[in-house]
């Protein structure tokens, strides 16, 4: 058993994703680094880090809660970061069209994120995300779809609110409702994970291939039941915290800014 931090792995799918999204940035910015590129690529590298690091390894083989961290970071941190990092001044037609689309149909963004989130947690689907064997170099097309859809959904979700075209952002009151209902959407999933019996995901009951089970159980004190509870609570509380903080920012924009000082 090697120390945990050496368990990096090189997933081909992730690298393809990275390249695809980098190319996307280039396409929208006319292949020039513009203001905000740091954020965009920061978000993208965060994705890389999440997908290749030992955290991902833990999520794949031992801990639902580790998997959940990756899931949440991809959806709620990487996605919005990349969106904010999109070239603001760009008058690329695509950005306008997408902004207009999400201004008219904000709920599509909502649906994409919540839908993706729920879809990947249906037990049968969940099991299929993980490749049967773990090698250092691998490509697993469902895992590729998984990460890709999370990133994309993260971007779509935040688009109505953080749209690069300022005048096409939704009005703050709708924004609050939008974020709050999203919070409910993921709360319910979190709630179910928290209070469901720990046998929900059979995946983590497979053999202890790398010999970490004992370490996790005794020195980290995370039992199977606790792990699923933790995962559920992460989906629930920190996730909602992000949504609700967003809502509070919208309130701030709406009320505090134009207050008479």
């Amino acid at each position: 058993m090697e120390p945990l931090f050496t368990y990096w792995h090189f997933d081909l799918g992730t690298v393809i994703l990275f390249l695809l999204f980098s190319w996307g940035y280039g396409y929208l910015s006319g292949f020039k680094l513009q203001k905000g590129a740091g954020l965009y690529f920061g978000g993208l590298s965060l994705m890389l880090l999440m997908e290749l690091s030992p955290l991902h390894f833990l999520g794949m083989h031992y801990l639902l809660s580790a998997y959940m961290i990756v899931h949440i970071v991809l959806l709620l941190i990487c996605g919005p970061l990349m969106l904010i990092g999109l070239p603001r001044s760009s008058d690329h037609r695509l950005i306008w069209q997408v902004s207009r689309f999400f201004n008219y149909w904000p709920w599509m963004g909502w649906l994409s994120a919540i839908g993706v989130m729920w879809f990947w947690h249906i037990p049968a689907v969940f099991e299929s995300v993980f490749p049967a064997d773990h090698t250092v170099f691998s490509f697993h097309w469902i895992a590729f779809l998984h990460s890709g859809s999370l990133l994309l959904a993260g971007i779509c979700f935040s688009w109505p609110i953080l749209s690069p075209v300022r005048e096409l952002q939704v009005n703050p009151l709708l924004g609050i409702v939008y974020l709050f209902t999203a919070c409910i959407g993921c709360s319910i999933l979190g709630l179910l994970l928290t209070f469901a019996p720990p046998t929900l995901y059979k995946h983590y009951f497979m053999t202890d291939e790398f010999g970490f089970a004992e370490l996790i159980k005794t020195s980290w004190g995370i039992s199977r039941a606790k792990d699923q509870q933790l995962a559920g609570l992460m989906m629930w509380v920190p996730c909602c915290f992000i949504y609700l903080s967003g809502a509070m920012v919208m309130v701030y924009k709406m009320l505090v800014k134009d207050e008479r000082v």
Binding site: I184, I188, L191, L192, F195, A196, P197, T199, L200
Partner: peptide, 16 residues
Amino acid sequence: IFFIALMITYVYFSVT
């Protein structure tokens, strides 16, 4: 929300 409550209850019991 009413239906969500019923459905959560369904799912909750269905995994017990």
